[in-house]
Design a protein around this nucleic acid. Structure first.
Length: 890
RNA sequence: AGGGGCUUAGCUCAGUUGGUAGAGCGCUACCCUUACAAGGUAGAUGUCGUGGGUUCGAAUCCCCCAGCCCCUACCA
């Protein structure tokens, strides 16, 4: 016995992964006669750890890659990692904090050395974890976003977009993180509902004779007010338009302006305008050419415009301002008010709208073609609904703020001339200013948004801007597998830049995965403590079990609840596969494949019904798997395989062939051994992309095999035609009858509580000659699998004290009759038969009603009607048989 | 506010051309039958969220309502 009685993944997985890797099986060829197939791995963050979402995403990609590789494609899975600007810098800054240091104290260069050191030491832990999962990436091509090649691509893209006028530097109101002290893109701001108050504040008119009441949630920003606005048609305030009011707590007076933006119904109908700290106010400010007063510093404290509140953080300033307003009786009222407030999605602090000079990408020009390719189907989303989300975003797109006041990342390739202030944008550091020739140049301190380099990933990883063979062969890629949370961040931007710089889409199809939730449906997160660590799960259950659990449950774009009991179920499936293989190999120990090879197999004669049946079922299975994988319906493919392996191959085929294998008819035995060996070989190959380790391990011990499962052919109805042709439908259907008969006997046994050990005497009463022949031919199977001491096949005979079950399938009809006298209390059997009659009668009533409906007969497809009629006849004969037997039980 | 999704067996979920509902787990009974007790055999369980419409026929298509979730935008 070559295999141990339980599959232990631990011992197998590491060894096989290394072997595959050493053999170079993961490598794709830049030039090949095989058709190309490529997938880009969404580069995980270097700070990252494999989480269950990765495990799902990667299982899907690896399934595709392995399937295509086995199907004769030159399959490339392009791996890499992302420097993840903010996240990584944050990790190292926290380390520094433990040493009571800040990055500024260390200085840019020293700090970056630390980050690189960290990256080298811990950075690619996730890569190791990907290998645990079995990811078959082409590791020789591995790329890091800060590698020189990719960095050159980043600079090239930046310079070209700048020259085209698609990148510009400008002062705008942007989202600012006081914690990071950096700009954020709109997408990095997360809005959360906050319970706050709406403060109604008196603003006295300049002449001191009147006042208006302004409603605001942010009283501290009044220090940056430059106007108050009312609706032009608001009768209450019409007279005030053009007059001035004084900002409480200050000596400044500001004009009352009219703008249709103001909602008369909300609050007091008067809005304070703070253009430097609010997006709506900003647009109003521009419309009315108002000054803009910034009251905050980079770190979110108030600056000198904050007057007495200078140096305070926003929250503290708000409290103090309110105290003073209350003390001086400026507060009219305070209403509770819930509103959503933007937060820095990275650090969780409140993001402040700030007026700031930053670099932007102009999106409108790039968005047009990116919309077109999705509208015309060049790029498709699965599920399709996401295309709508994508298009909606592109239709309302804002310019992309790409500069970050961080150090870890691609430094913006712009050099400021200290002499003439000209901005030199170039791929490499210029020696002198292109305008005034001054050598006094200083590079931009800011780095690019991490997503900028990600946007180029599909071609930058392939060697662009060189026109490499890799690019020629593998761009555009075939499928992108990713979560819906980064459709805007990443998918849209890759499409835009792919079209701009390659003139072609980066991928043809976007497979959107759902989120993985816990058993209660909550998001998995560290803070909730409900996150399952896939690495731990792999250690406990094996990578294959984890992969199969995910793949068997993933429905396009739908969230997936992950539970350990389910995982245990699929771990059991792995064990089932293992034991089926173990059994097969033991009965194949004296088998050697025919010297003539596989090609001549079509000449096998005298296949048993069981052999013919399993080949036929295999053909059905291969056809479905082929279709389902092609349609990216992974879970359905997984379930087809599960059902075939467990409930066809193990439950029936292996049981049916035991008499032959243990028997002494050598010719039959050899034939069955051959079919078993071939079927097992195909099962292993079919399963391989789902569960690579266990299948390779078994494969290497098969009597019929090639070099390695990972590079053997994937069975499909076309490639496997010769073999599958051996499975005859008629034979398979005959065996289906045998299975039904066995099931019927077992049912009688079970329902009548007859011990499994007790032998039974059975008479099979076939209705027509064909069934008679089938039963006769397969009598041995029936006797063995339903444990009979005697089995007559005869139309005539007594029904006295007998259990009866009518069986009919594929047109064959048989009454299964079990002698019960002296074995059981007949009451049980009476109940069983009454129950069966009742059920059949119920079916018959509804079927009969349908068939009596003229409209049904007229409108339904003919085959449905014919089928219905046949079924009706069948039901009535079944009922009659049962009634007869009921009478004879007494 | 707009958009999308979900609601099917006790639990978690499948169910893509509308033909009368499935899986896994759990549960019950019996069984250590020499591949597998992480197993085998048999069994129980569903007015497919509510109401209406289209149809001969609806879990499936359309509308209403309810509950839950997500996204985008706005919120003085």
């Amino acid at each position: 016995m070559e295999l141990s009685d339980r599959y232990s993944p631990k011992e197998v997985e590491g060894r096989l992964y290394k072997w595959w890797s050493d053999k170079g099986y993961f490598a794709a060829q830049d030039q090949s006669t095989k058709p190309p197939y490529s997938v880009i791995l969404p580069p995980p963050n270097v700070t990252g750890q494999l989480h269950i979402g990765h495990a799902l995403n990667h299982s899907m990609q690896d399934l595709l890659i392995r399937w295509k590789r086995m199907s004769g494609f030159n399959a490339l899975w392009m791996p890499g990692t992302d420097h993840a600007g903010i996240a990584t810098q944050g990790v190292v800054e926290r380390e520094l904090a433990k040493e009571k240091l800040t990055r500024r104290e260390l200085g840019r260069e020293k700090f970056l050395e630390r980050v690189w050191g960290w990256k080298k030491q811990y950075g690619d832990r996730i890569i190791e974890q990907m290998k645990y999962l079995g990811d078959s990436c082409d590791w020789d091509r591995f790329v890091f976003t800060l590698d020189e090649g990719v960095s050159l691509a980043v600079r090239r893209v930046f310079v070209q977009l700048y020259k085209k006028g698609l990148i510009y530097k400008g002062t705008k109101l942007i989202n600012w993180s006081p914690k990071l002290e950096s700009a954020l893109s709109d997408l990095e701001v997360e809005y959360k509902e906050i319970k706050g108050s709406l403060y109604h504040i008196r603003y006295p008119t300049e002449d001191g004779k009147g006042e208006v009441t302004v409603a605001t949630t942010r009283p501290e920003t009044m220090l940056g007010d430059v106007a108050v606005a009312v609706h032009p048609q608001d009768e209450r305030y019409k007279a005030l338009i053009g007059k001035k009011v004084r900002i409480p707590l200050t000596t400044r007076s500001i004009p009352v302006i009219a703008d249709e933006y103001v909602d008369k119904e909300f609050g007091s109908g008067v809005v304070k305008i703070t253009p430097a700290h609010d997006f709506n106010d900003y647009t109003i400010g521009i419309r009315h050419k108002l000054p803009m007063i910034t009251i905050l510093n980079r770190d979110g404290t108030l600056n000198e415009n904050g007057l007495a509140y200078k140096g305070l953080k926003v929250q503290e300033a708000r409290k103090r301002v309110l105290d003073d307003l209350r003390a001086q009786n400026f507060i009219v009222k305070e209403d509770p008010h819930t509103h959503s407030v933007g937060h820095d999605s990275r650090t969780g602090v409140v993001a402040e709208p700030m007026l700031s000079e930053q670099w932007f990408v102009k999106m409108e020009t790039l968005a047009g073609p990116a919309k077109a390719v999705v509208e015309n189907g060049t790029v498709s989303f699965e599920p399709e609904a996401w295309a709508k989300t994508y298009l909606h975003w592109l239709n309302n797109i804002q310019d992309w703020c790409i500069s970050r006041q961080l150090w870890w990342g691609h430094r913006i390739p712009a050099w400021y001339c200290e002499g003439c202030k000209h901005i030199n944008v170039a791929e490499t550091a210029p020696v002198k200013c292109e305008k005034c020739n001054s050598a006094n140049l200083k590079q931009e301190d800011d780095v690019l948004d991490t997503w900028f380099s990600s946007a180029l990933w599909p071609f930058s990883t392939m060697g662009w801007p060189e026109e490499t063979e890799t690019l020629k062969t593998f761009y555009p890629t075939d499928v992108l597998v990713t979560g819906h949370d980064i459709i805007f961040f990443w998918v849209a931007r890759m499409i835009m830049l792919g079209l701009e710089f390659r003139g072609d889409v980066p991928f043809r199809k976007v497979l959107i995965t759902g989120l993985i939730r816990d058993a209660e449906g909550r998001k998995m997160s560290k803070s909730l403590g409900n996150a399952l660590d896939p690495v731990e799960l792999i250690e406990e259950f094996g990578a294959d079990s984890v992969r199969f659990t995910l793949l068997a449950q993933v429905a396009a774009g739908k969230d997936l609840k992950f539970s350990v009991p389910r995982l245990e179920g699929y771990r059991n499936f792995m064990n089932k596969i293992w034991n089926a293989a173990r059994f097969s190999l033991s009965v194949l120990s004296d088998f050697s494949p025919p010297a003539t090879g596989v090609r001549t197999l079509a000449k096998i004669e005298n296949l048993s019904d069981a052999d013919s049946w399993i080949i036929y079922k295999l053909a059905e299975c291969e056809r479905q798997v082929d279709e389902l994988l092609g349609a990216a319906r992974f879970s359905e493919a997984a379930n087809v395989l599960y059902d075939f392996v467990w409930h066809k191959f193990c439950d029936w085929y292996l049981e049916l062939i035991k008499p032959v294998l243990y028997g002494d008819k050598q010719t039959e035995r050899v034939t069955t051994q051959l079919v078993l060996a071939q079927t097992l070989n195909r099962i292993v190959r079919l399963l391989h992309p789902f569960v690579p380790f266990i299948t390779e391990e078994i494969y290497q011990k098969l009597p019929i095999k090639g070099e390695a499962c990972i590079v053997d052919a994937y069975p499909n109805p076309k490639s496997d035609r010769d073999w599958l042709a051996l499975g005859a439908k008629e034979k398979a259907q005959e065996l289906d009858l045998v299975i039904e008969v066995i099931a019927a006997i077992r049912n009688i046994r079970g329902e009548n509580r007859i011990k499994p050990g007790d032998d039974l005497v059975v008479r099979l009463s076939p209705v027509e000659a064909s069934a008679q022949k089938v039963l006769q031919a397969n009598k041995a199977y029936i006797m063995k699998l339903s444990k009979l001491s005697k089995c007559d096949i005869d139309v005539a005979g007594s029904l006295s004290k007998c259990a009866l079950t009518p069986v009919s399938i594929h047109g064959h009809k048989v009454d299964v009759i079990v002698y019960l006298e002296g074995i059981v209390d007949l009451g049980e059997e009476r109940k069983r038969i009454e129950k069966a009659i009742e059920k059949f009668q119920k079916d018959m009533t509804s079927l009969d009603a349908r068939l009596k409906n003229d409209n049904f007969v007229k409108n339904a497809p003919e085959d449905v009607v014919v089928q219905g009629r046949a079924q009706l006849v069948e039901l009535s004969t079944k009922i009659k048989s049962l009634q007869d037997s009921l009478i004879r039980l007494n």
